[in-house]
Design a protein around this nucleic acid. Structure first.
Lengths: 267, 267
DNA sequence: CCCAAAATCTGCAAAAATGCAGAACCTGTC
DNA sequence: GACAGGTTCTGCATTTTTGCAGATTTTGGG
């Protein structure tokens, strides 16, 4: 057992080091793709839209567009991240594993969200990002990002607001993990999915993810998610169509978590 | 029970609304205090030090200094935050409660850290901040903060890096909450305390907080913390002097959590 | 439409965490 | 140095969560 763990650790370290050496060895499954340049981008929620025309022109020239197929990594745990990814269209989960190979989804990112982090020094975090469906992203290297911040105050301000807001959301999720029952955490996971991936849909949302995916967001296992879904179906909050779940009234679901009152944040 | 909850909710809402109306009704226990202006500030970890001389002069002129006594709020849950607090010297916890009156510590902030968030619109989060010992903070209103970002690129960049880093730390704490056993979470809480409040001490750290305080960080209760401490004393990781705990070798403690490998982050 | 593979659901026993209550221990004051 | 008030520790019964295993349902390919 101890020896087994030791090997796992060594392997993990090697994996990390490999990725330090080849941080962007191109994944053959990740394809460059066509996305409009920033001046003509239809994605109004992208923060680059806060830049001046010159800024957008620069960003459009420098950015690299990728199509990340479903279940492929945008970047891997332990790799150096040399810039930021802006989600053009799609669904991304930010994940973190431990050596027992249990994966926790620590953040969800939808259209217009930023992934990756800004570093000057060689930082290296055990966090990765995976596409939950075919997703188009725009990559900006750190240098260009820095230049955009220098020359576009509105952009810099919005980026700070974005991170500050995500930090607060993450802090509330922290509270959820430590105070909620498993059943409540499952409801919370569904609401988080709704607010991130369907920010505009008012009442009725369809969710079609494997139970294990939802479990990784809620911080439990797929059996509990199953039990939770069954219970919510019995109570009339969910309907199902095959393995897909239909939430007819998201607000009713929110009311189940009133003691945790964090709805301001789930805009 | 239901009615009781209903009243609690109403009261909570009223509390929130009151604080919206009087976001800065001065707490009599919070005193303005003497802190050097930013040009002569000895706190090198403060991000305002990244500004130009003009920026520092402006910040020094506009900032308000407070001495927050132990156990007093810097700001309360639900209140409007109209600017940012920079910790000059002391220890702050960022907390979030639920209606069952259970409080979770979602972040720790030591010297040089930033609290509060930047908002243009009237946002309102169920998050508060409390001094864990007498603490001096500098308050900058949003307008000045915005001006500093406009005119000091290095500052803007560092602020983005700060939030991005805190977000990542928070995400790792999320993983900890959902994957660690209670015992591991307690160890993690001690390490988080060490890395935030004693960033420079190499091996030996003294921690003197009530068990309930540590429980709120770890996401458990004080009984479990007690049991955890006893166990760690038996194993030789902790010594005690009255109710104070002495960790002779922080690195040895870290090794207990190797499967979660997040030490890069606990700088 | 049928079938095999995959995913989901559910009952149950084992494990972990919780909360209570009383004992032991610390702290500061007189 | 004794004492009161507070904090911490620990044993125990209860509750919650977990993980397994087998039953059931769904999915996608022919």
């Amino acid at each position: 057992m101890f020896i087994c763990n030791f090997f796992k650790i060594v392997l993990f370290r090697v994996r990390l080091r490999d990725q330090r050496i080849h941080p962007y060895s191109p994944n053959k499954l990740i394809l460059k793709t066509q996305i409009p340049d920033c001046l003509n981008c239809p994605n109004t929620s992208c923060l680059i839209q806060q830049c001046t025309s010159e800024g957008k022109t620069l960003a459009g020239k420098r950015k690299i567009n990728y199509l990340i197929p479903k279940d492929q990594h945008v970047f891997r745990e332990g790799s150096l991240v040399l810039g930021a990814y802006f989600v053009f269209k799609g669904k991304i989960k930010v994940v973190s594993s431990n050596l027992h190979n249990k994966e926790q989804t620590v953040r969800l990112a939808g259209d217009g969200h930023i992934l990756g982090h800004m570093t000057l020094d060689k930082e290296c975090y055990p966090i990765g990002a995976v596409a939950m469906e075919d997703t188009k992203v725009c990559f900006l290297d750190n240098q260009t990002f820095f230049q955009l911040i220098n020359e576009n105050h509105g952009f810099a301000y919005k980026v700070i607001r974005f991170y500050s807001k995500e930090l607060r959301k993450s802090e509330l999720r922290n509270r959820s993990f430590s105070q909620m029952s498993t059943f409540e955490k499952i409801i919370f996971a569904f609401l988080y999915l709704c607010s991130t991936f369907f920010p505009n849909e008012e009442k009725c949302v369809e969710i079609d993810f494997p139970r294990a995916e939802i479990a990784a967001i809620a911080g439990t296992n797929s059996e509990q998610v199953s039990r939770g879904i069954t219970s919510l179906k019995e109570k009339g909050f969910f309907e199902s169509e095959g393995q897909k779940i239909i939430i007819r009234d998201v607000d009713a679901l929110k009311k189940l978590l009133i003691p945790y009152l964090s709805w301001e944040i789930l805009e």
